[in-house]
Design a protein around this nucleic acid. Structure first.
Length: 572
RNA sequence: GCGCCCGUAGCUCAAUGGAUAGAGCAAGACCCUUCUAAGGUCGAGAUGUAGGUUCAAUUCCUACCGGGCGCACCA
């Protein structure tokens, strides 16, 4: 454990309590909680758990503990019993000192050693080529990027990969639509990926309306998998367009993966594995297709090969798993997809186990993004494309920025608007628990007030502006004892919690914990900002101490935003 | 039909089994000669239903009611 002020404080309290009270001999740091209201105290010990072994009721225990008056006196200024709780009031000066000391190396502040160097591969967002990139994909990217950062901060060695499905029936539908209805047409320059996405949607719609086209589409895929020259050439060209477009989106959203795998590169190998499974009797033929019956496990039937001989995700995934572990020397792999694929992953992991592959693989399923009028589907055209939404937010942000800073250059306004748009979009995805469906509300996405990314950036910009104006006053010794105001203390206490929030968010695969934390930090800063003037502090010493606190808060906010991969801006 | 997820304020979301269930938006009343009003302050407003476990349930269990998703040739 690195220098973590609250860890130091809590363990001091725990050690002292254990020494003084026999019935607390098994006390752990986890037993300490934060009171719901700071008027009780800063850290609390609920006494329910010890009542039985001590033979007293919790309130009596709390009173007995509080009577000792002195516990970890270096950190605690008062102990009060309130019903079954013992509340510890922290000394604000030693708290602030511990926070400042820990932040001397801000890079390490939020970290923990949960991972102990374990090598983990994280696979996301894996969009398909030849399809559209919509705001649902954005949630996947945001989660993947934030989780990667969180895992790294928790001591894991991360390998990010993207696995691109460039060979499946979606590709066939797109190419079929292209050849049948748009032969010879050229895509608008720079918008090729988008154009293909629209073709896919058209192909899917036409096929749905006219099932009699199915053999034609199947033939395209069969030719593709059989490496037919003409189809293959068209595939190669369009695939490159699509990948270029996707790469642009993913890079803008912060994904730093190595694209190591393509469906087209492992599909043949997967077919071999399916043949082996068939031979061993693990898989069997049914209705012309190859399946594994998993109904005994409650997983239904897993389809490995279609009756026309072409492969599926499952076909390739059997080969991919082996390849991943071999190439990257990883201890564990994580897949991030939306929950609709949860059953599929259970099937896949079971199939891998049946085939003798027992490496640790997990699937993180997040709920999908839907629209107020229903589920998004590129097939039906009811989608909000990432590009469109981003541009709409950018222009709204540019307009707001221009209003506030008419003197700024066009370039500066554009850069600021871009950062605001990404912050809004990304924070909007990350602030929700991954297990909750997001009903994407355009109006909310365009808002810059309240629990939003721009609010966090606004707070950061205010901190920055304040620090810029006080640069000269920041020097010299800081007397932390001058930070006695409740707003100052609450801000310091909350800032000190970053390490435990990072650890918890990692353990729960839930970046929203960090998002909520960062927002709360900004709210507390706003309270401090309102009540504790820095530039017009009562005297120089107080000003110095407050500057140090602002720096600390800014450090913590900066780390939080970086972990969430939200861009920082100095002014707005 | 079976399985998974979700039901908290008008809306969108918080709350390791613990103290008076917190925020934002919307609606209402305030605060810019005062460190960026993209902000702050003050009111109003909620745990789907019925049981159970527990000293204590929004949280765990069961049933029901609502909603979403998944359950062989899609990805």
């Amino acid at each position: 454990m690195k220098k973590n002020p609250l860890h130091i404080i809590k363990s001091a309290i725990v050690e002292d309590l254990k020494k003084r009270h026999a019935f607390l001999s098994a006390l752990g740091e986890d037993a300490l909680v934060y009171p719901p209201d700071t008027k009780f105290g800063d850290i609390a010990l609920p006494c329910f758990a010890y009542a039985k072994s001590a033979g007293k009721n919790p309130a009596e225990l709390a009173r007995a503990i509080a009577e000792s008056r002195v516990v970890a006196s270096e950190w605690v200024s008062a102990i009060n019993a309130a019903g079954p709780y013992v509340n510890f009031v922290l000394k604000s000066d030693s708290l602030a000192r511990a926070l400042f000391a820990a932040l001397k190396k801000p890079v390490f502040f939020g970290t923990n050693d949960l991972g102990k160097g374990e090598r983990v591969m994280i696979e996301y967002p894996s969009p398909n080529t030849h399809k559209e990139f919509h705001i649902g994909h954005v949630r996947n990217v945001c989660l993947g990027v934030a989780l990667t950062h969180l895992y790294e901060a928790s001591g894991f060695k991360m390998a990010q990969v993207d696995y691109t499905n460039d060979l499946g029936s979606h590709v066939a539908k797109c190419l079929w639509a292209l050849m049948k209805f748009h032969k010879g047409e050229k895509p608008p320059r720079g918008r090729e990926a988008r154009w293909l996405g629209a073709l896919y949607a058209e192909g899917a719609q036409k096929l749905e309306a006219h099932p009699e086209y199915a053999p034609e589409v199947s033939e395209v895929l069969q030719k593709l998998e059989a490496r037919d020259k003409a189809v293959r050439a068209l595939w190669k060209k369009t695939r490159a367009w699509s990948i270029k477009g996707m790469d642009g989106y993913l890079k803008e959203l912060g994904a730093r993966y190595k694209r190591e795998f393509f469906e087209s590169e492992v599909k043949d190998e997967g077919k071999k594995i399916v043949a082996e499974l068939l031979e061993k009797g693990i898989a069997k033929k049914s209705q012309g297709a190859v399946i594994i019956d998993m109904s005994a496990q409650g997983f239904g039937v897993m389809l490995l090969l279609k009756s026309d001989g072409t492969g599926l995700y499952a076909t390739s995934d059997l080969a991919l798993a082996r390849k991943k572990f071999k190439l990257f020397k990883i201890d564990r792999s994580i897949n991030i997809t939306d929950v609709r694929q949860s059953l599929y992953f259970k099937q896949l992991f079971h199939a891998l186990a049946l085939s003798g592959f027992t490496q640790k693989m997990t699937h993180i399923g997040y709920e999908f993004v839907r629209l107020p009028e229903g589920a998004m589907a590129s097939r039906t055209g009811r989608v909000i494309l990432y590009e469109d939404m981003r541009d709409e937010i950018i222009s709204a942000a540019a307009e707001e920025t221009k209003k506030r800073h008419p003197e700024w250059s066009a370039r500066k306004i554009a850069d600021t608007a871009h950062a605001l748009a990404l912050a809004g979009l990304k924070f909007g995805m990350l602030k929700y628990d991954p297990s909750k469906v997001i009903v994407f509300d355009k109006k909310e996405a365009l808002s810059f007030e309240g629990f939003t990314g721009p609010y966090l950036l606004y707070t950061f910009a205010r901190m920055n502006s304040l620090l810029k104006k006080t640069r000269s006053g920041a020097r010299g010794l800081v007397d932390a004892a001058l930070l006695a105001d409740a707003h100052e203390k609450q801000l310091a206490l909350h800032a000190a919690r970053l390490p435990e929030i990072v650890q918890s968010a990692t353990e729960n695969n839930n970046p929203s914990e960090l998002a909520q934390y960062a927002y709360k930090l900004c709210q507390l800063f706003a309270g401090f900002y309102e009540h504790c003037p820095v530039l017009r502090a009562p005297n120089k010493e107080v000003a110095r101490a407050r500057v140090a606190l602002v720096q600390a808060a800014q450090n913590v906010l900066e780390q939080s935003l970086k972990l969430l991969d939200i861009p920082l801006i100095q002014e707005m």
